[in-house]
Design a protein around this nucleic acid. Structure first.
Length: 220
DNA sequence: GCCCAGGTGTTTC
DNA sequence: GAAACACATGGG
C-alpha cells in the first residue's frame, strides 16, 4: 500500500532536501490551491490532463454561480455541469467524474465525515470512484484533506529520474514509497514540493539537469 | 496549424 | 503489464 513509510535512507533524504531548498530558493512559494477544501476536490478533477489555468477558468464559472462546492456540483445534471466546466476540456467526462466524486463524498458526511477515516481507507475508496485514479485521489487527500500523501505525477518521475534517484521504470506506488520514506510526513511540505517540481518542469531543464539556468544544476 | 497541459478508462497485444 | 488511444479546450 502506498501509505507505507519504510525506513529513511539518509542520503536520499539529504538529496531530496537539497533539491527542495534549491527549488524554493529559485521559485519561491507556489501558492497552489488558493481555495476552500471543497474547491480543491473539484479542482483536482478539473485539472486532469489540463493546464491549471483552464481548470481555474472552469472553477471560476462554478464559483460565480455559487456552485463551487460539492453539493453544488452533485445537484446539477451532467449537461448543465458540462456547460459550466467547458473551459477545462473533456466537459462531459469531467462533469460525470465531478458528480461521481462529489456524490461519493456527500454520502459519507462530506469532507467532515471523511476526516474521521484513516488515509489508506480513504484512498482505496476514492480510487474506487469512476474517474478517480491514484493521482487525483492523492491530490484530494493532500490538498483537500491535509494528509501527508505525495502526489506523484510525470514531472516528479522525470525530475527524480534526471537526478538519478529513479531508474525511470518505477510505478506510481514505488515512487511514492520512496518519497514517503525520505521526507518528513508534512502535508505542507509535500504540497509545496510537488508544486515546485511542476514549476521547474514547466520552465527549465526539459532535457538535462546541466542546462543553463537550471536551479538544480549544481546539485548533481 | 501544431503542440502541450497539475489523468483516467478501455482496448489490444 | 505496457502501449495506444479517446476524451476536448485554451494558450503559446
Amino acid at each position: 500500500m502506498s501509505i507505507h513509510r519504510p525506513a529513511t535512507d539518509p542520503h536520499l533524504a539529504r538529496t531530496l532536501e537539497r533539491i527542495y531548498r534549491a527549488l524554493l530558493g529559485r521559485f519561491g512559494c507556489q501558492h497552489w490551491w488558493p481555495g476552500t477544501a471543497e474547491e480543491m476536490v473539484i479542482g483536482s478533477v478539473l485539472t486532469q490532463y489540463t493546464r491549471w489555468e483552464n481548470a481555474e477558468l472552469a472553477l471560476h464559472r462554478l464559483r460565480a454561480r455559487r456552485l463551487g462546492n460539492l453539493a453544488g456540483v452533485a445537484g446539477l445534471t451532467n449537461a448543465a455541469l458540462g456547460r459550466l466546466v467547458r473551459p477545462a476540456g473533456c466537459a462531459s467526462v469531467k462533469a460525470e467524474r465531478l458528480r461521481a466524486v462529489a456524490g461519493w463524498i456527500e454520502a459519507r458526511g462530506g469532507l467532515t465525515g471523511l476526516r474521521r477515516l484513516p488515509t489508506a481507507r480513504l484512498r482505496t475508496g476514492l480510487c474506487g470512484v469512476r474517474g478517480i485514479g491514484p493521482e487525483t485521489a492523492d491530490a484530494i487527500l493532500l490538498y483537500a484533506l491535509g494528509r501527508p500523501v505525495f502526489v506523484v505525477d510525470d514531472y516528479t518521475r522525470r525530475v527524480l529520474h534526471r537526478y538519478g534517484i529513479l531508474t525511470g521504470h518505477e510505478r506510481y506506488g514505488a515512487v511514492q514509497q520512496l518519497l514517503h520514506s525520505s521526507l518528513p510526513p508534512e502535508p505542507a511540505l509535500y504540497g509545496e514540493y510537488h508544486a515546485l517540481i511542476v514549476r521547474l518542469a514547466k520552465t527549465h531543464c526539459r532535457v538535462k539537469p546541466s542546462c543553463a539556468g537550471c536551479p538544480l544544476a549544481r546539485l548533481t
